[in-house]
Write a protein that binds this DNA or RNA. Structure first.
Length: 414
DNA sequence: TCTGGGGTCCTAGGACCC
DNA sequence: TCTGGGGTCCTAGGACCC
């Protein structure tokens, strides 16, 4: 199950008047396009296209633009995923707008289940979705893609016989295959492989040699042999990153502290939600992907380790600021910063360091209390004084004042 | 003037062990 | 002149995903 133009569809649930109108959603810092309505796709605007390049088009066609509002998208995502439970237990939530479901073997009912999924989510959440049904994840993804693009499918494509698999293979451009990215697509096309069918016609050894085990699995999946497991309860995260580009350059340690403290607090909060602790934090700074004045690219980073793994905001923020101080240098025009929590483990069963003198328990309790208060009164209602109060990024086109308090969100919903 | 922010897995090579 | 053969763990970098 794949939501169509997900972020755009989310904005439209709040603004039903934008149905059939051109709508797009921008990345953080209002940098590039990350979601497009069908009307915007028809105008030739590409995924990931820088916003400044299309300002003329936006004006000319009256395109409605939104800064991304992930609180809204996650809220709607959660409701969609909950509805899926009625159709198959334990859907695998693959991303904010996609899930895999393990359907019953009874092939006569498959298509009807797909139709019911599309109808239910449309009626109860107001988001259009596509469903692809097939024996492997790779084929199901391709089927959902076709169901999305061709209105004759009414949102559901079922690829459940060898003949249908063969047809799908020959229709599918190699670059559209799940697992074949830009690099491999270029390589394969230069070898005369244009469709999924051309690809599966290659010997397995050749695929293994040039594309390693992942490519080989894709090759087998395209032929109906499942290689990517249905993962009911995905393992816990291996890292948690929070990073942002700045609306304008920052050049001093003093000015960098606030956003970095904000990132650290946000990462620590995500960590606690997962019930995990981190043994390391990485801090990084950069002057962006496109440095001003032809300056050389700068990427500075450092790792700070904790004697005992932690999840509390105070210790994690302190470590982040310590790391920041050690890498920041004068005369760099910083455009981006971030923190990454690494070496994660489950909270229970952590080893205390023998020579550790910090009262972690106190800090953990403070963070737990802060989480409870912020749960009721809104994100960052209670925070460390060093922390920035606002995102350092540009967000000039938010659809509404972000709903921060759960009770406000509910009011809106009902 | 203006170009996102998260994640995953695999491989090769080096450090180190016995 | 001649210098083994196994491992494991970690990291960086490259590929991919949404």
């Amino acid at each position: 199950m794949d939501c169509n133009n997900f972020f755009v569809s989310c904005e439209r649930t709040v603004r039903p008047d934008l149905e059939k109108k051109p709508v797009l959603v921008l990345s953080n810092n209002d940098g590039c396009v990350i979601a497009r309505s069908n009307e915007v796709k028809a105008l030739g605007i590409k995924m990931g296209q820088p916003f400044f390049q299309i300002k003329e088009l936006v004006k000319r066609h009256g395109i409605h633009c939104f800064s991304s509002n992930f609180i809204l998208y996650e809220d709607i995502s959660h409701r969609v995923m909950q509805l899926l439970e009625q159709f198959a237990p334990n859907p695998e939530i693959y991303s904010v707008d996609e899930a895999f479901l393990h359907l019953p073997d009874d092939t006569s009912r498959l298509r009807q289940i797909g139709i019911d999924i599309v109808k239910t989510i449309d009626q109860q959440v107001g988001v259009p979705v596509s469903v692809g049904i097939a024996p492997t994840k790779t084929l199901a993804k391709a089927a959902a893609d076709i169901a999305k693009k061709d209105a004759r499918y009414h949102g559901v494509a079922c690829v459940d016989t060898p003949e249908k698999i063969a047809t799908l293979q020959s229709m599918l451009p190699i670059g559209d295959v799940w697992g074949i990215g830009r690099r491999y697509a270029k390589f394969l096309i230069s070898n005369g492989i244009l469709t999924a069918k051309d690809f599966v016609d290659k010997p397995q050894q050749w695929v293994r040699r040039h594309m390693s085990v992942m490519g080989e699995k894709t090759w087998r999946e395209l032929q109906g042999e499942p290689c990517f497991e249905y993962n009911r309860s995905p393992e816990k995260r291996q890292q948690i990153m929070v990073s942002r580009s700045f609306a304008s350059v920052i050049t001093t340690f003093e000015a960098l502290r606030e956003p970095v403290a904000l990132f650290a607090a946000s990462a620590a909060h995500k960590l606690r939600q997962q019930g995990m602790v981190a043994a390391q934090i990485e801090v990084f700074l950069s002057n962006g992907r496109f440095p001003a004045d032809n300056a050389a690219k700068v990427w500075q980073s450092t790792i700070v380790s904790f004697a005992t793994p932690v999840s509390n905001t105070t210790e994690i923020t302190n470590a982040a600021l310590l790391g920041l101080k050690s890498i920041v240098s004068k005369s760099v025009k910083y455009k981006q910063a971030g923190v990454v929590l690494r070496s994660l483990s489950h909270q229970e069963g952590i080893q205390a360091d023998l020579f550790d003198t910090i009262d972690h328990d106190k800090h953990q309790k403070i963070s737990a209390v802060m989480d409870r208060i912020n749960q009721s009164y809104g994100r960052n209602y209670l925070r460390l004084a060093i922390q920035a109060t606002e995102s350092p990024s540009r967000q000039e086109m938010l659809s509404s004042k972000q709903p921060t308090r759960p009770d406000e969100r509910n009011k809106k919903k009902h």
